[in-house]
Design a protein around this nucleic acid. Structure first.
Lengths: 131, 131
DNA sequence: CTGCATCCGGGTAGATACTG
DNA sequence: CAGTATCTACCCGGATGCAG
């Protein structure tokens, strides 16, 4: 540990610090569409674009494509094009993406399991101050 | 519970379905500030408003207050006012909030631990297509 | 100290239309 | 089938000023 470097970036990722890249990464992986895409690919194995679109009901083409591009750039998924006619494109989690799956699956599970608690809490809270 | 209802909401929380409340909940708990507040309260115990503000560097008053109000409404934190002069306000995780801590701490940890991998993947990817 | 009200600029999601 | 391009409307986040 030489004491000369003012800000050794690699050794100090801390999302509590302003401007730390990891804070932005939390935003990225916390994104609704990112969670759903990663979990879908994790549960169902490799999926085609149209299968993802069907699995994640209501996602727009723009958001799905944009999300997939981002995940590919971040090395979390791979994109495989089979030049048949018509074209077939498969998406699959990388090992890095699989490690994220372990985290995001818990997020989705928690949300679904505790939705009832949250709604109850909201009702109680709104009954107090609201109306 | 007669079997006549077409959509028994309580039994089918599934974030893959459009309009399911749990999808919106994923957005909420995936929020950057929510993660940081919950993790801060989980690691450091009860914290005052000003302590949270100091811990989460760069958060604005508006976002911190807004986040705390939302968490309180959702039953994830408690807000305790001590009417001294000046006022002292402490925030603390509820049991429900603590269960979320287990999830969000992993999100923050993952982001900090894999930030290097992500940056490497981005460099590789950008070296391909971009200039 | 803790918080609310307001304004405002930029980013972003969604709808739509078009293409290889 | 698997996208790209464009446009608009909305929301969000930051800054500022005021208050209990």
């Amino acid at each position: 540990m030489a004491a000369s470097e003012p800000v050794p970036a690699e050794a100090c990722y801390d999302a509590f610090q302003q401007g730390c890249p990891s804070r932005r990464l939390i935003e990225t992986i916390g994104d609704k569409w990112v969670s759903l895409v990663v979990v879908a690919l994790g549960l169902r194995g490799p999926l085609r674009y149209s299968e993802l679109s069907a699995q994640i009901v209501g996602v727009s083409q723009k958001m799905l494509t944009q999300t997939l591009r981002g995940l590919e750039r971040d090395g979390l998924i791979t994109r495989t094009v089979t030049p048949t006619m018509p074209v077939r494109v498969d998406y699959e989690l990388t090992p890095l993406g699989s490690s994220l799956l372990g985290v995001l699956a818990h997020v989705k599970d928690w949300a679904e399991r505790h939705m009832g608690d949250i709604e109850a809490a909201r009702s109680r809270h709104d009954a107090m101050a609201g109306v």
